[in-house]
């Protein structure tokens, strides 16, 4: 005896989820029930239509903003700020990068993230600082003027995230207030990024461990695009400071950060 045909059977028939036996039974049922058959044929037509209409979207080339390599390099733009939950997700992101790297994801396919000759040392630090500015300065992320953690709290969070002691430079003397802090994944390890604002001007400080032997390096000024930059190394920790303000205004700020960092 054939178990009664159910609505679920009719759906499973349309969706090709029936075993061959049951499918034959449904075929027989439909042959005798023209109204149900008409219904099922309409459902099948819907299925064919929805594929004809939307499958081409899946075949389109991916736009840049949906390419994983772009998303991964821009990832730290979103995972940020004072809440510990966000710190955790930022850390999760680093773990994710670790998974990718460890299992050879970078080499996957035709080198989607091309890793040719990467700059090292100060040259890398400069580029990372400039990149951090490009990402964070245009106000893509909301300002967190309500600094609930305080500078000490931010220092603590950043330090535990990057694995070395980070002191948040106090730039109030120059009129800059901190509006954001995050960590960035760089090819040389995690970097702490601090974003400051004075009126419409933004200033970005990037701090990370250097992987080159030099324990200390004098301050170097440079220019990339519209930006002025100062970079230096202190006790194996690299510092980058950048903004689009005049060199003469940026220099004392960089000096202030360096002098505050230097152990007495």
């Amino acid at each position: 005896m054939i178990p009664p045909i159910t609505e679920d059977d009719l759906h499973a028939y349309v969706d090709d989820r029936l075993a061959a036996d049951r499918r034959r039974q449904v075929d027989g049922y439909l042959a005798q029930n023209p109204r149900q058959e008409e219904r099922v044929r309409a459902w099948q037509a819907q299925r064919d239509w929805v594929h004809a209409r939307f499958d081409p979207v899946a075949a389109e080339p991916l736009p840049p903003q949906l390419t994983l390599s772009h998303l991964l390099t821009g990832q730290a733009t979103r995972a940020s700020f004072w809440s510990t939950a966000n710190w955790r997700s930022a850390a999760g992101f680093l773990v994710a990068l670790g998974i990718g790297a460890a299992s050879g994801w970078y080499g996957h396919g035709s080198a989607r993230i091309s890793v040719p000759t990467l700059p090292v040392g100060i040259a890398a630090l400069k580029l990372e600082t400039k990149a951090a500015y490009q990402v964070f300065a245009p106000g893509r992320i909301p300002d967190q003027t309500n600094n609930a953690l305080g500078n000490n709290g931010i220092s603590k969070s950043l330090s535990s995230a990057v694995g070395f002691a980070v002191t948040v430079p106090d730039l109030a003397g120059s009129g800059y207030g901190i509006i954001g802090a995050t960590i960035l994944a760089t090819t040389h390890g995690p970097a702490a990024v601090l974003i400051y604002r004075r009126h419409k001007t933004r200033l970005v400080v990037l701090i990370r461990k250097m992987d080159v032997p030099s324990r200390a390096g004098r301050m170097i000024e440079s220019h990339i695009g519209q930006n002025n930059l100062f970079t230096w190394i202190n006790n194996g920790i690299g510092f980058g400071v950048t903004s689009n303000i005049d060199l003469r205004m940026l220099h004392p700020i960089a000096n202030h950060i360096r002098d505050a960092e230097t152990p007495t």
Partner: peptide, 18 residues
């Protein structure tokens, strides 16, 4: 890997969202 699986799924996510 999980990442490449995510990457592989992006086109169908676009289809679904569309």
């Amino acid at each position: 890997t999980v990442l490449s699986k995510i990457e592989e799924t992006i086109p169908s996510l676009r289809r679904y969202a569309s």
